[in-house]
């Protein structure tokens, strides 16, 4: 029997989707061995969150009323205390920016083997975790021999659990050692938007690493103009300073759902796909026929953008 402790996540008063995905992953994992799924909600309006999390497959929700927003020092203390109280076999957390800010410390302090960014979990005697490597070109499986583990799951890989359940809700008291809280969140800022909001565009021409040089951005801008579309990009273009941050599509940029998304020289890393998979029509132009972008594309051109884009511009002139 393997009990699972899953740690939910919230930000600025709302539970994040990964919390509901953790319920799915956690209840699958617990039920494979007849164990219980314990959920923890730490900080914020824990009672309201607990109501939302009263879902199928959850046995007990532990509320820890400490602080409003995420603070990794508080999370580490709360999760280690819960672990010691509940003695679960597995601790599941989200492979999110905040997950990666506390999960490794939890694993280190509890001396648990840590597997991050799981895209699959199987419990057949030992826990087997599926992960991607080398920018999603390779998948691997990792077996955990310790009988216990801390695992972070990739957002968007599991369905969210929606069906209601009747878990017990228990307040969990933790004595937070304030001398161990050595970081303070002082605020949040939205990345400034310029005059263009890519989330409002019907047609996006989006450019990635394949454009190679800053001076080539002009070529895709020309295409965007010819198509009466808005220009957006993947992360490396913004990191290089070739386009402003408000043009970035992806996990850390904007989530867009245009009618047409034309991905040019974008390989389709998971962080990018998270921001555009909801587009109605996805068209990809890439030299690499195995690029992951083609997995979600509706239309594809395997070819050199420097050959195809000028021809396409000509078609619309």
């Amino acid at each position: 029997m393997s009990d699972v402790l899953a740690i939910t996540e919230h930000r600025r008063g709302e539970l994040r989707d990964v919390s509901f995905e953790l319920v799915t992953a956690g209840s699958d994992l617990a039920s494979q061995s007849g164990g219980d799924l314990h959920l923890a909600v730490i900080g914020g309006d824990v009672d309201a969150f607990a109501e939302e999390l009263a879902l199928d497959g959850v046995d007990t929700i532990h509320t820890v009323a400490e602080g409003d927003e995420f603070n990794h020092d508080v999370y580490v203390q709360a999760v280690t205390a819960l672990y010691e109280e509940l003695d679960p076999t597995y601790v599941l957390m989200g492979n999110t920016v905040n997950g990666l800010d506390y999960a490794p410390a939890v694993a280190e302090q509890l001396d648990l083997p840590l597997v991050t960014d799981a895209v699959g979990l199987e419990n057949e005697g030992a826990l087997t975790v599926t992960r991607e490597m080398y920018a999603s070109k390779v998948e691997s499986t990792v077996e955990v021999d310790a009988g216990t583990a801390a695992v972070t799951i990739r957002p968007g890989e599991w369905d969210v659990t929606e069906a209601a359940g009747e878990p017990a809700v228990e307040a969990f008291d933790v004595e937070i050692d304030d001398s161990r809280v050595r970081s303070r969140v002082t605020g949040f800022e939205e990345v400034g938007s310029g005059d263009v909001d890519i989330a409002d565009a019907d047609v996006l021409v989006s450019v990635g690493r394949g454009i190679e040089e800053e001076e080539n951005i002009e070529l895709v801008q020309e295409l965007a103009d010819a198509l009466d579309a808005t220009l957006s990009s993947s992360r490396p273009i913004v990191d290089n300073g070739w386009l402003p941050k408000d043009r970035q599509v992806g996990q850390s940029g904007k989530v867009v759902t245009p009618k047409v998304y034309l991905a040019i020289g974008i390989s389709g890393a998971v962080q990018h796909v998270a921001g555009m998979k909801g587009a109605e029509n996805i068209i990809a132009i890439n030299t690499d026929p195995d690029a992951p972008i083609f997995d979600i594309a509706d239309y594809g051109i395997v070819g050199d953008l420097f050959d195809v884009v000028p021809e396409l511009i000509e078609q619309f002139e």
Binding site: P113, M133, S140, F294, G300
Partner: peptide, 19 residues
């Protein structure tokens, strides 16, 4: 405590229409 047990190329799931 972690053992790499398998490595493979993920199956491509593309059902794109190619030009």
């Amino acid at each position: 405590d972690l053992e790499l047990t398998d490595m493979y190329e993920p199956e491509t799931e593309s059902d794109a229409v190619y030009f």
